[in-house]
Deep mutational scan, measured.
Amino acid sequence: MDPFVVLVLCLSCLLLLSIWRQSSGRGKLPPGPTPLPVIGNILQIDIKDVSKSLTNLSKIYGPVFTLYFGLERMVVLHGYEVVKEALIDLGEEFSGRGHFPLAERANRGFGIVFSNGKRWKEIRRFSLMTLRNFGMGKRSIEDRVQEEARCLVEELRKTKASPCDPTFILGCAPCNVICSIIFQKRFDYKDQQFLNLMEKLNENIRIVSTPWIQICNNFPTIIDYFPGTHNKLLKNLAFMESDILEKVKEHQESMDINNPRDFIDCFLIKMEKEKQNQQSEFTIENLVITAADLLGAGTETTSTTLRYALLLLLKHPEVTAKVQEEIERVIGRNRSPCMQDRGHMPYTDAVVHEVQRYIDLIPTSLPHAVTCDVKFRNYLIPKGTTILTSLTSVLHDNKEFPNPEMFDPRHFLDEGGNFKKSNYFMPFSAGKRICVGEGLARMELFLFLTFILQNFNLKSLIDPKDLDTTPVVNGFASVPPFYQLCFIPV
Rank of each mutant, 00 (worst) to 15 (best):
N176H: 02
E122K: 10
L77M: 09
L447R: 03
L11F: 12
D463I: 09
G117F: 04
A106M: 11
T392Y: 06
I257V: 13
V330L: 05
D224N: 08
T392N: 09
E92F: 08
K158E: 15
I88E: 14
N286C: 04
Y424H: 14
L234P: 04
T159M: 13
G62P: 01
H344T: 10
I47C: 13
P101R: 15
K270L: 08
R206I: 07
N277Q: 15
C266L: 13
V6A: 11
W120Y: 05
F446A: 02
G439I: 08
T34G: 06
L287Q: 00
E142P: 06
S162D: 15
K322G: 10
G437E: 02
S209N: 13
M255K: 12
L449G: 02
P427T: 05
L170M: 14
N277W: 07
R132W: 09
I331E: 00
M406W: 12
V323I: 12
K432F: 09
I88T: 06
L195T: 15
S422C: 05
A309S: 10
K121R: 12
H78S: 13
L90N: 13
T167H: 13
H316N: 13
L445N: 07
F4C: 13
L453A: 09
L131T: 05
F446R: 02
Q278K: 12
N403G: 11
G91W: 05
T470A: 15
L380G: 06
L7H: 02
Q22K: 10
I387S: 00
G98N: 08
E199G: 12
Q193N: 12
R329T: 10
C435L: 03
S12R: 03
Q192E: 13
F487P: 01
K273W: 06
R97A: 03
Q340K: 07
M198S: 07
I284M: 14
M240N: 02
F482S: 14
E300S: 13
T283H: 09
M74D: 00
L237F: 09
G296L: 14
L449A: 04
E85N: 07
Y189V: 06
D89F: 07
Y347F: 05
K273M: 12
D89L: 08
G40S: 02
N116R: 11
R442I: 08
S478G: 10
